[in-house]
């Protein structure tokens, strides 16, 4: 089955991102795939390319990136939630005259419509609340 996961929790503040990642990595064991992970609320902070955890902690940024590459998972970030909290891609940075971007390359800023679209088209939706 194709799964849509929704992540509301900021990395390292709450367990939501760890739980979602762990679940996403386990899906192939039973023949499934995380087709879409949608980051909303404080979950959008998972998408920062500037995340620099100490070496003895799990590197969430690296793990999301590996997941996306291994299973062609779309890592979608609510653009409205992201911009107001300082997560911007190159295009938005230029549009708003900012001196740098902060979105990690595997992630994509999208509208909330993509969350609804994933919920409507995927076989199962699991929310990881914060």
């Amino acid at each position: 089955m194709n799964y849509a996961l929704i992540v509301y929790g900021a990395p390292y503040s709450q367990q939501a991102a760890h739980s979602a990642l762990r679940f996403a990595e386990a899906l192939p064991h039973r023949g499934h795939r995380a087709a879409t992970v949608f980051f909303y609320h404080d979950g959008i902070y998972n998408a920062t390319r500037l995340m620099t955890p100490p070496q003895d902690e799990p590197n969430l940024r690296q793990r999301w990136s590996l997941l996306a590459k291994a299973h062609n998972t779309s890592l979608l970030v609510c653009v409205a939630s992201a911009l107001k909290r300082g997560i911007v891609d190159n295009k938005e940075a230029r549009r708003h005259g900012l001196d740098g971007d902060s979105l990690a390359p595997e992630f994509e800023l999208t509208g909330l419509g993509q969350l609804l679209d994933a919920a409507l088209t995927h076989d199962c939706v699991v929310t990881f609340g914060a």
């Binding site: 409205a80 509208g111 909330l112 419509g113 969350l115 609804l116 679209d117 409507l120």
Partner: peptide, 11 residues
């Protein structure tokens, strides 16, 4: 916001 977007998509 999610409710409004869902409705705008015709759901």
């Amino acid at each position: 916001e999610a409710a409004l977007v869902g409705a705008a998509l015709g759901q």
